[in-house]
């Protein structure tokens, strides 16, 4: 599981901050979080990611 890249999609900044800290501590690589579905799809268009099942 280590080394997986995660895109956080969340409009509440504090939650994003908290999740980022938790996930980094757990050893995940994080790309810039998205604050809406549109920006998330844009980010996915640029750099395709494996989707969490």
């Amino acid at each position: 599981m280590t080394g997986e890249t995660i895109l956080i999609v969340e409009d509440e900044g504090l939650i994003v901050l908290h999740m980022t800290e938790l996930l980094e501590k757990a050893g995940y690589r994080l790309v810039d979080p998205a604050f809406s579905v549109e920006t998330a799809l844009q980010a996915l268009g640029k750099a395709p990611l494996p989707i969490l099942s």
Binding site: G13, L14, L17
Partner: peptide, 10 residues
């Protein structure tokens, strides 16, 4: 850090 993050992302 909070200021920085919130300002840029929120």
């Amino acid at each position: 850090k909070l200021v920085n993050f919130l300002a840029r992302h929120q």
